[in-house]
Design a protein around this nucleic acid. Sequence first.
DNA 1: AAATCAAGTTTCAATAAGTGAAATACATGG
DNA 2: CCATGTATTTCACTTATTGAAACTTGATTT
Lengths: 247, 247
Amino acid sequence: MAESSTRTVERALVLLGAVCDAGSLSLTDAARRADLSASTALRLLRTLEGTGFVRRDTEGGYRPGLRVVQLGAQALGHESLVSLAGPALDRLVELTGESAYLSVRSHDGAAVYLAMREGTHSVRHASWVGRSIPLEGTAVGAVLEGELPAEGFVAVRNGLQADVTAIAAPVTVGHGGSTRVVAVISVIAPSYRVTPELVATIGRRVGAEASTVLGGGSGTSADPATTGRTDKEYTGTGGTAAKEDIA
Amino acid sequence: MAESSTRTVERALVLLGAVCDAGSLSLTDAARRADLSASTALRLLRTLEGTGFVRRDTEGGYRPGLRVVQLGAQALGHESLVSLAGPALDRLVELTGESAYLSVRSHDGAAVYLAMREGTHSVRHASWVGRSIPLEGTAVGAVLEGELPAEGFVAVRNGLQADVTAIAAPVTVGHGGSTRVVAVISVIAPSYRVTPELVATIGRRVGAEASTVLGGGSGTSADPATTGRTDKEYTGTGGTAAKEDIA
DNA sequence: AAATCAAGTTTCAATAAGTGAAATACATGG
DNA sequence: CCATGTATTTCACTTATTGAAACTTGATTT
């Protein structure tokens, strides 16, 4: 990591990250967050501005530019995993009514949501694509770290976020004996709604769906598309999604 | 624009853009596209890799990294326009069954789709968020350039893409006399499905919806039922388009 | 197997390019 | 009007970037 790299570029990217994290940042704030002198920050931000990676709002603050949006969207489009996992997420939402996520390990030792489908219950877990979550104390993290109980899924009740239960299973790419976890599919529900038995049911389903994402056939199990699909719950209204939930 | 800017950073960003455009790029290709020597390109790509902006696939090619996805998604989330326009897009799709888009001017003199809703017809226009489209010869471009017929919308039949008709209206922010176009709402439909009268009807609706996005009330209420634009050439329908669509 | 070619990677001296402290300009408000 | 905080410019210092060339690797041809 600390090998060969160009300091200037690194700094500019940190700056870009800071601006994107904050949504809007003054020069001084940006410089502080990136630990740069004001003049250096200004020069770099100007470069970012000239290339469309940041833009200035009316108050002079720096905001993420369109280029960021554009490249991000393009990158998502090229992510074959996202399209491959789409149907599985859809089915999980249809089956459970809860929100379903696809996440992968990020470069900095965290996980990122790559795709999501909102649940249909009016009270549901809400997050967003691009959000990063820690590995410690989360079901997603456990699965990414290779922890995998015999059941084929990991459930964490009231872990990172109080009141919600996360149920996660690995998307593996496995040639022969050496399988590797490349992504995680998870369903996240308000804890009050899921009994241990329901968690187990959902967990099995999540595991089954996760195994279909890549290579479909070989793998752990029953064809999820044909297994009993009992409950279709359309609580349907889908008012407004809950706002921010922290951490 | 060409004032003060750091060459290294600019080069790195060009490289990043090239990688994202291509989806996957070998070192040599990336260097060629960015017009850099191989060694420089390698060093910069390594920096981008170390920060998560690119990653290497199994074949050694460079691909957009998760950081790009993450920042892009964050930026989109912070774009208040996107959330403000969401309901309008939804209503347009519900009303017309056609795909609806929100676009803004990009930094390089083009337009970018910031949000979209797919139509419900089985044959529908399909594009993606982040896609950039030229200003010339497009309804979106015309509106962004300030062209606005009395009807309140611009329609272009078979312009950029054969067989489709685009109907666009401006989202303006206007205090007093000086209004400014900040974004465009458009509906894009297969040409065979929209008669001139239907275009006019949809156009009026697009104009009305566009005016609700910001500031709500005061709008360019469009009444007359005359079409805004006339046809371009219409080359034989026999074959297919399949130009550069990825899908 | 040897020769050939192309892509990737490393090295290194030359210097172009980036740095930040300090000076200056521009606000804001007490 | 002065105090304060932020944005921007300047400039001497020198560090970090550069690209040609050398080398490695691996595939393809002779």
